[in-house]
């Protein structure tokens, strides 16, 4: 039995004694042992009791290995911290060693085939008149499907697209009277070649691809001409005439890629 100093925090401070009478234990019997069994028997409140044991050595080593791994993983698969890199795998090494055979930086754009490019260009450029079916509009815009101007020699076709075609026209015995503008100002050689490659191989058409170089050559050859063609002028161009520098090709189908 020793004298115990009660911890400071346990000393009643606020309430005078008479207010506390009968309050303790909420009007139940004052026998903590039986009524507060749960509290009376419980161990003391947990507290820090000055134990400051360090990490076990093996754990410290393990954490260091983990940190090392993390740094390496972040370096190799962090995509160079670029916001346009989504596949960590094909960029990781390339990001830091651009000469590595996996290729550098972001992946190159997938090149469209001339046919695909032509298809999407056709939608924006030609479809309004010639229609997505290539059938044109009776009386106004001639069909492209099966048209002799389309699947014949390239020279005729490219000439028309470059300079345009005015006035009456007869295709498959049907007459049309529309105005086609020249496209040389708004479409470059690559686009014209792509559109015509598409047109020559869609809707049952089968003809050779049109090369951008040929279009460029014809563009240069016709540079001095300002006005559009009319039907007789176009028909004056031989039906199987190729583009400048090109091989003569007739209506006989070349190897159609599609």
């Amino acid at each position: 039995m020793s004298e115990h100093k009660i911890p400071e925090y346990l000393i009643p401070q606020k309430y005078p004694k008479h207010e506390m009478e009968g309050r303790m234990d909420y009007n139940e019997a004052a026998d903590v042992g039986s009524l507060h069994g749960a509290i009376a028997r419980e161990k003391g409140e947990p507290a820090y009791e000055g134990q400051n044991k360090r990490l076990p050595n093996w754990l410290t080593v393990f954490f260091c290995v983990l940190l090392f791994w993390s740094g390496g993983y972040l370096f190799l698969f962090g995509g160079g911290f670029r916001n346009d890199v989504f596949s960590e795998r094909d960029t990781a090494a390339a990001m830091y060693f651009p000469k590595s055979p996996t290729g550098g930086g972001a992946a190159p754009e997938v090149e469209k085939t001339p046919f695909e490019l032509g298809k999407s260009l056709f939608t924006g450029t030609c479809q309004a008149c010639h229609q997505s079916t290539g059938q044109g509009v009776p009386g106004q815009y001639p069909p492209l499907a099966g048209s002799e101007f389309v699947v014949g020699g390239e020279r005729r076709l490219v000439s028309i697209v470059l300079k345009g075609l005015q006035g009456p026209l007869t295709i498959h015995g049907q007459s049309f009277n529309g105005q086609m503008p020249g496209w040389e100002a708004s479409l470059n050689d690559k686009k014209i070649a792509a559109i015509l490659t598409y047109v020559r191989n869609e809707w049952g058409n089968k003809a050779s691809d049109v090369s951008p170089e040929g279009v460029a050559a014809l563009r240069a050859e016709l540079a001095s001409r300002a006005e559009s063609w009319n039907e007789s002028e176009v028909r004056a161009i031989p039906e199987t005439a190729p583009l400048p520098g090109g091989k003569e090709s007739g209506p006989a189908p070349a190897a159609a890629p599609h």
């Binding site: 890199v85 795998r89 094909d90 996996t102 992946a107 469209k112």
Partner: peptide, 19 residues
């Protein structure tokens, strides 16, 4: 629709990972 930052299907670049 093709985008420059997304390659179309292509064989995995790092064969050693076996993916």
């Amino acid at each position: 629709h093709s985008l420059p930052e997304a390659k179309a299907a292509a064989p995995a670049v790092s064969p050693q990972t076996g993916g």
